[in-house]
């Protein structure tokens, strides 16, 4: 067989010749089936939205559709968790900037420079993705305690970047391997230094891969729960994931507020899936290494 490179899913459109018979006779049935499968898979998401709009705050009386939507849950959620949402946003954005700034040059070096130890470095990056988060949390808690980074936004940005940097390096490298060295060399001949050539040639050419890496880094940091749980001890800095967890401990009587917070925390994922689908598709396949 041909290689299993995952180039295929991304450019899958190129291989599109299923047997015509299959396509014409049954395609309508398949679409109906597909919609049913999707409806089953996404039912929990629907139920989350539905519950967030229920007035009683109690799932016992939940209707299948919020005929009389109430926004009391959202009012409560924003009052309780608004600040945490902002904290999550700041941490996620910080983590995106930090991760891309660190990963992009390294990815370029691993893609185009001829270092002897590149394979060893790639192996280390692959393995680093397999290290359980609790191992990192254990060690960081003690280190952060000494460094005064507990309960701090920079501390969480750095910790969350462990979700992002190895992934970003791998996905960026895979794209930067395809950059023809001649276009960089042309800039070099014109007198640009290596850094300048990287910033003005490599980065623009890799724009799509960088967007993919940035979007996923955002999602990874936004979703982080483990570091939020272990590296904060006060209410000062509290990402919304931890806010939901604490809600679960104390507020299960008020499900509409919990679910309203859950819906608000899902907005980035939903937005990205709808607005940035092609980047997500690329990253999802790259996600094989995540």
């Amino acid at each position: 067989m041909t290689t299993t490179t995952a180039t295929a899913p991304v450019v899958a459109a190129s291989r599109r010749h299923p047997k015509p018979a299959r396509r014409t006779t049954h395609s309508g049935i398949f679409t109906v089936l597909g919609v049913i499968f999707l409806a089953i898979m996404l039912f929990p998401v629907y139920w989350m939205v539905n519950a967030s709009l229920q007035p009683s705050g109690n799932t016992l009386t939940a209707e299948f559709f919020p005929w009389n939507p109430s926004f009391a849950g959202y009012e409560r959620a924003i009052a309780d968790q608004g600040a945490n949402l902002v904290t999550s946003l700041v941490i996620s954005l910080g983590s995106v900037v930090f991760s891309i700034a660190i990963a992009a040059p390294a990815a370029y070096a691993l893609a185009q420079f001829r270092f002897r130890w590149i394979n060893a470095a790639l192996l280390a990056i692959l393995i680093s993705q397999m290290i359980p988060g609790i191992v990192i949390a254990n060690a960081l808690y003690t280190a952060y305690n000494d460094l005064g980074l507990l309960n701090s936004i920079p501390g969480l940005i750095l910790a969350d970047s462990t979700h992002c940097i190895p992934f970003a390096i791998l996905i960026l490298r895979a794209s930067m391997i395809g950059i023809p060295p001649s276009i960089v060399e042309a800039a070099r001949v014109d007198g640009a230094g290596l850094v300048r050539a990287f910033v003005s040639i490599v980065v623009p050419v890799s724009r799509n891969a960088i967007i993919t890496a940035a979007l996923f880094s955002f999602l990874f940091s936004w979703s982080d729960f483990l570091f939020a749980l272990t590296l904060t001890t006060t209410e000062g800095v509290r990402p919304v994931t931890l806010g939901i967890y604490q809600y679960l401990g104390s507020q299960v009587a008020n499900w509409s507020a919990v679910m309203a917070t859950a819906v608000l925390s899902s907005i980035p994922a939903i937005l990205l899936l709808v607005l940035a689908q092609r980047f997500i598709a690329a990253g999802a396949v790259g996600g094989a290494v995540k």
């Binding site: 290689t3 299993t4 490179t5 995952a6 180039t7 899913p9 991304v10 394979n119 790639l122 192996l123 990056i125 692959l126 791998l170 996905i171 490298r173 895979a174 794209s175 930067m176 391997i177 395809g178 950059i179 023809p180 050419v205 890799s206 799509n208 891969a209 993919t212 690329a282 396949v285 790259g286 094989a288 290494v289």
Partner: peptide, 14 residues
């Protein structure tokens, strides 16, 4: 080896 799983995104594979 990571190439097995990471797509070379939009950049043409030269």
């Amino acid at each position: 080896m990571s190439v097995t799983t990471v797509p070379p995104t939009e950049v043409p594979m030269s």
